[in-house]
Design a protein around this nucleic acid. Structure first.
Length: 871
RNA sequence: GCGGACGUGGUGGAACCGGUAGACACACGGGACUUAAAAUCCCGAGAUGGAAACAUCGUGCGGGUUCGACUCCCGCCGUCCGCACCA
């Protein structure tokens, strides 16, 4: 009987229906089994899923299905990060409503994800743009406001004057708005902030407890929080060419190099510093200088290219240890107002920026730290600042001390004089969440002229977005809505104005994993449910979220704990960051700028060792370009729908797991994909052939097993054991390799089906194969399982148990080296002792030859591994 | 500039705690089946020399530790990523 091909596109929907109808993946909150919460970062409903989603959700699904088989109560939910700018951009471009656009996309993408056969409890689905979600977010906001974890303050933002909105730093390209192309201005706006800095110390210290996070991510967060120890020091001000503004007697600076205080040659303050603002009215030219600095903007690009410039204010600062020593005070563009005190002292010899500045303005450069071996009198610094260790010089009472000693001594003396204190400073800022956008969670606040800022009463939640808004003009549609913002003050009843800013969409994703625990609860969280499920045991997503999303979520867990909504501080116990999906790029030959071609638009043939691409439509040659992340702009896309529709989800899933380690990028190739497809068919054939020969399910174990049967038996048990371990440590590519090996063993065994005991062993090995394949290709596994005669689901089967006795071999191959070079190998019983192995090794011809009659100096024997004869 | 990761066949990659480098897969070559092709099955394969046995070399480069190094140490080179005027 000829085996028919396994028709995945036809069978996969069948099994999805079976799972769905039987509710196989529905999860109860506490059913007595140990829990396991596996979560992949939820998608933004951009329109269609892409291969990155396929990879991400496949990995999570393997973990979820494997844990289920191990007997865990698995929570594996899915939702939609559904607020955001693209919906509004679509609204502006296509005259559709953001809500309609978003919900349509969700429907499409839900269908696509379902076609992947993911073991998801769809009853728990949530969308952040739904009032049933965001009303709870508004409640969290109000509770955090009451606790002082939400504050309102003024801050600098990138303002796009054409689109009339605030832009994130990433949205400013070369000083222009990414969408409008308008020159971005720096504006001072009053905004809402989450006080993430309230938890700085804890967020930093607790990183050490996250032992199942990648070291890299913990380091990135550590650097982002940016702790540094230093001192605040007050310098008295003195008039010079300019007079001191009234009330300005001293200037406080922050430094981490107080040991270099005697190398000071200037002071520099930020253009936004209050002192600079006060001086601006008195010093000619200063207002213009400050305005020029402001124009530069706050984007990273702008800062990178900006030259260090300063403006001499004409006033002086007095050295804290020497009243006769005065240094000029500059306003300088490189001093940031929002770090430290917005003022520094310049020590050019030991700080590169200060040196650049000093050399430009001809300020003195006095080395005060001299490296060991250098002569204090002749040591000079120019061009490059000396930042290494050494002994203090030219520094009065500090001379001869090490840097550390000098820091302590300065700190002690300054504190004694009451001129400053030791201080730990952080880079981390509060999180500004106000966005002048429509498609986001409304901030539940009312502004009243009489009462000020008034929270919306809980009974009035949710503050719903109005549906009747227009996108024909730039700016915030909420702002120009005719009635929405007009309300009466909940406190005094007089006419008042609703807050029209909405929340940053990062807020939505900062607590969705809590909501999944009890998605229909009346309160934001259900304490019992979240206590049971959290923390997430395995979180999987892209490295691009290493800082913002993961830090915000850690903040939210703390803030929710402090407002009684949660009692877990670290939301993600295990984190895995997966690599991207990359693909070759193709473009038309000889055309500039490049005209990109889709992979489906080119055909590729091999000539010798060269690969040649041709544009199918025109027959003209195409250029094979670099391998890059799949993107619309480069057109190097493969559509998951096409793949799943033609070849089935299992093949795509298998491909995503094969070959490349999951943390690295995977390159999509048609050859690799073909291999995955062939392997799927091969398993189907293997099972089909085996069914014809294998023993019935209830057959008892034969009395004797042939060597071939015994070998297969061991291979099966070893594979089960190894694959489980690989999945547990998320090394899917190695699990895949192990499955190939098991399949190879089975192919071999099928040719020896007459060997004694083989039919009995075959059944076991084939069932093992189907079960270890199940987490990765679940539809195929179900099909095979039923082919094996079962009317149960493999999705419900426990993970097979490997017999420990079968995991160790009775005979072992031992490598034999002479002087560290491998010359031969020995097959010995596992129990062979050193003397036996040594004797056997010395008898080998190859060993005798290699020794060549020399005297044996030493023999190293590592039982079960290696022999090394040193001669 | 600061911080981090990674360099292994033609390709993706494997190699546990220092113990047979190249598992597994792709591509490639040869063969079987077929009128033929596809599919499938079998065999080969790091490089160099050799018909072969075998020998030599071989994990970015240069040193070191060790009976033994892809693995540990020191110094380079290259690629990639994150942060970046943070005082």
């Amino acid at each position: 009987m000829a085996t028919e091909r396994y028709n995945a596109p036809e069978r996969e929907p069948h099994w999805q229906k079976v799972w769905d109808e039987k509710g196989v993946f529905r999860t109860l909150n506490d059913d007595g089994r140990p829990k396991y919460y596996v979560l992949e970062m939820f998608p933004y409903p951009s329109g269609r899923i892409h291969m990155g989603h396929v990879r991400n959700y496949t990995m999570g699904d393997v973990v979820a299905r494997y844990r289920r088989a191990l007997g865990f109560n698995v929570l594996h939910p899915m939702g939609w990060d559904a607020f955001g700018m693209p919906a509004e951009n679509a609204a502006m471009a296509n005259k559709v409503h953001p809500a309609g656009w978003t919900y349509d996309n969700i429907a499409t993408m839900r269908g696509q994800l379902k076609s992947m056969g993911l073991s998801i409890d769809w009853d728990r689905e949530i969308a952040t743009c739904h009032p049933e979600y965001y009303r709870h977010q508004q409640k969290l906001f109000l509770d955090m406001l009451a606790k002082g974890l939400v504050i309102r303050k003024s801050s600098k933002v990138n303002w796009d004057p054409v689109d009339m909105t605030v832009l994130a730093n990433e949205q400013v390209i070369d000083g222009r708005g990414w969408r409008s192309g308008a020159l971005v201005e720096t504006r001072e706006l009053t905004q809402w902030f989450f006080r993430i800095t309230h938890y700085t110390e804890d967020l930093l210290a607790s990183l050490d407890t996250l032992d199942r996070w990648p070291e890299k991510v913990r380091l990135m967060q550590q650097n982002w929080i940016g702790r540094s120890e230093g001192m605040l020091i007050d310098w008295d001000l003195a008039a010079g060419a300019s007079k001191l503004p009234r009330g300005e007697k001293s200037l406080q600076i922050f430094t981490t190099r107080h040991d270099t205080l005697f190398g000071a040659s200037f002071m520099a303050i930020s253009p936004e510093h209050p002192l600079a603002q006060k001086l601006a009215g008195k010093v000619a030219g200063l207002p213009e200088f400050i305005a020029e600095c402001r124009r530069t903007g706050t984007s990273a690009e702008a800062l990178e290219t900006a030259e260090k410039v300063g403006f001499d204010t004409g006033i002086f600062a007095v050295h804290p240890f020497d009243k006769t020593w005065k240094v000029p005070v500059y306003v300088a563009n490189f001093v940031l107002m929002d770090y430290g005190t917005g003022a520094i002292f310049g020590c050019p010899a030991h700080d590169q920026r200060d040196l650049d500045f000093a050399e430009k303005y001809a300020l003195p450069v006095t080395p005060v730290v001299v490296p060991s071996g250098a002569d204090a009198k002749s040591f000079t610094v120019s061009g490059e600042a000396y930042v290494g260790p050494g002994r203090l010089a030219n520094s009065a009472f500090l001379d001869g001390m090490t840097v550390e000693e000098a820091k302590s001594e300065v700190a002690r003396r300054i504190e004694e004089k009451g001129r400053g204190t030791r201080r730990v400073m952080y880079r981390l800022r509060d999180w500004g969440i106000s966005r002048q956008r429509y498609w986001g969670c409304p901030i539940p606040i009312i502004h009243c002229e009489a009462c000020g800022v008034v929270p919306v009463p809980e009974a009035d939640l949710p503050v719903r977005l109005p549906d009747d808004v227009t996108f024909d003009r730039p700016g915030n549609p909420l702002e120009r809505h005719p009635t929405w913002k007009d309300v009466s003050c909940p406190s005094c009843g007089k006419p008042a104005r609703r807050e029209t800013d909405t929340m940053d969409t990062f807020v939505d994703s900062s607590w969705y994993f809590v909501r999944f625990c009890a998605p229909r609860a009346d309160t934001p969280s259900d304490l019992a449910a979240s206590r049971y499920w959290l923390p997430v045991d395995q979180y999987i997503g892209g490295i691009e979220h290493a800082i913002l999303h993961l830090l915000y979520s850690r903040f939210f867990a703390r803030a929710m704990s402090d407002t009684g909504h949660l009692d877990v501080k670290e939301p993600f116990a295990g984190l895995f960051t997966q690599g991207m999906v990359v693909h070759e790029t193709y473009r038309r030959a000889g055309v500039e700028p490049p005209q990109w071609l889709l992979p489906t638009e080119v055909s590729i043939r091999t000539e010798g060792d060269k690969r040649i691409a041709t544009e199918i439509a025109t027959g003209k040659p195409a250029v094979i370009g670099s391998i890059e992340k799949m993107s619309k702009s480069r057109k190097n896309l493969v559509d998951p729908d096409d793949i799943i529709g033609h070849y089935g989800a299992d093949t795509a899933r298998w491909f995503m797991l094969s070959d490349s380690p999951p943390e690295r990028d995977v390159q999509w190739t048609s050859e690799g994909f073909d291999a995955a497809w062939r392997f799927q068919q091969r398993i189907w054939r293997l099972v089909d052939e085996a069914v014809a020969i294998m023993a019935p399910r209830d057959a008892s174990r034969p009395n004797a097993l042939s060597a071939e049967a015994e070998a297969l038996r061991r291979a099966g048990h070893k594979a089960v054991h190894a694959i489980g371990r690989e999945i547990e440590s998320l090394r899917f590519n190695r699990a895949v390799a192990q499955i190939y090996e098991l399949a190879n063993h089975l192919s071999l065994a099928l040719q020896k089906s007459g060997a004694e005991g083989m039919p009995w062993v075959l059944r076991e090995a084939v069932e093992f194969l189907v079960q270890v394949v199940n987490p990765m290709m679940p539809h195929l596994a179900e099909e095979c399982w039923s082919r094996l005669g079962y009317n149960t689901l493999v999705a419900d089967q426990p993970w097979p148990k490997a017999d420990p006795a079968l995991l160790v071999d009775e005979t072992i191959t031992i490598a034999v080296q002479v002087n560290g070079k491998r010359r031969d190998e020995l097959v010995m019983p596992r129990t062979a002792d050193k003397a036996e192995i040594e004797a056997a090794a010395l008898k080998l011809d190859s060993v005798v030859r290699a020794i060549g009659g020399r005297a044996i100096k030493k023999i190293i024997v590592v039982p079960q591994r290696i022999v090394n004869v040193v001669a």
